[in-house]
């Protein structure tokens, strides 16, 4: 099989943002240079001083999951992987040319193995798609946009919107990797309830809850929009609906056929 191309899983808004960034001449090189000489050095010291570095020797299974995902998505160089104590099921990726992945301990403690390999694959998919550049641009804007002669929101609002859309891309990437719709749906908002309950929540129940969320209308929808704008992550209900719509549209099958 061919590698999974970013075009097959990037959400349209995400893809447009990446194309817009990539069209600016030399921007990628400039960002990589600044990142290499600032946050990558900074976080490298923090991570290596405070967290456990995971390698093929001390975490062979986890390392192998990332190796498998890197092969599937066509990522040549595996990032450095670190482990930190954390309750939320999340990973963070920093750096552009030399990315580093930071995994919360709860991810390894609670997510079953067969789901873990799919969960972690989205980190590799994001790196391959160039999300690190956007994350870095967002970091720069959050910290320095006030000093520009334009309202900060001109930059931060679209970046916040992209920040939500990248999760839709992650869900699609996981589907392209696992071909298991039920598993990808269970991974959305995994941890909001304990595993035994999440196992029993059917896809139809998730979609039903998503529809109830979509059906919030009238004046309440204004409040919904305001709350949505202030969040860096999309609502789980929106992720479920977006993902289901993508499957129903047939785009997943087209992406799969192109890969074969």
């Amino acid at each position: 099989m061919k590698v999974i191309s970013p075009e097959s899983y990037l959400f349209p808004g995400d893809e447009e943002a990446m194309e817009a960034i990539n069209k600016i001449p030399q921007l990628s090189k400039v960002l990589a240079f600044i990142s290499k000489n600032s946050i990558e050095k900074f976080y490298s010291i923090i991570f290596s001083s405070s967290y456990i570095k995971l390698t093929s020797a001390n975490a062979p299974k986890l390392y192998h999951f990332y190796e498998e995902a890197a092969e599937a998505f066509g990522l040549d160089q595996l990032p450095e992987i670190y482990l930190r104590r954390g309750y939320q099921y999340k990973t963070d990726v920093v750096g552009i040319d030399n990315p580093m992945i930071l995994i919360n301990t709860s991810v390894l403690e609670d997510i079953p193995e067969e789901m873990l390999r799919v969960f972690l694959a989205s980190d590799i998919a994001g790196i391959k798609a160039g999300h690190n550049k956007m994350n870095f641009i967002r970091l720069l804007c959050d910290n320095f946009a006030d000093s520009l002669p334009i309202p900060k929101q001109v930059l931060t609002v679209p970046l916040l919107m992209w920040s939500k859309q990248k999760y839709y891309s992650y869900d699609r990437a996981r589907m392209m990797y696992s071909h298991d719709k039920d598993m990808v749906l269970r991974l959305i908002g995994y941890g909001e309830a304990p595993p035994d309950i999440m196992e029993r929540v059917t896809p139809d129940e998730r979609i039903q809850q998503g529809m109830e969320f979509l059906e919030i209308d009238g004046v309440q929808s204004i409040a919904k929009s305001i709350l949505t704008m202030s969040e860096a992550k999309p609502w789980n209900s929106m992720r479920v609906i977006e993902f289901n719509n993508w499957i129903e549209s047939g785009m997943y099958k087209i992406g799969l056929e192109e890969r074969i």
């Binding site: 309830a193 809850q209 969320f213 609502w235």
Partner: peptide
């Protein structure tokens, strides 16, 4: 609350919990 709960939390019922 209703927006946040329906948006991100998991609704429990007699089937799943």
């Amino acid at each position: 609350d209703e927006i946040i709960f329906r948006g991100s939390h998991v609704k429990l019922n007699h089937h799943n919990a």
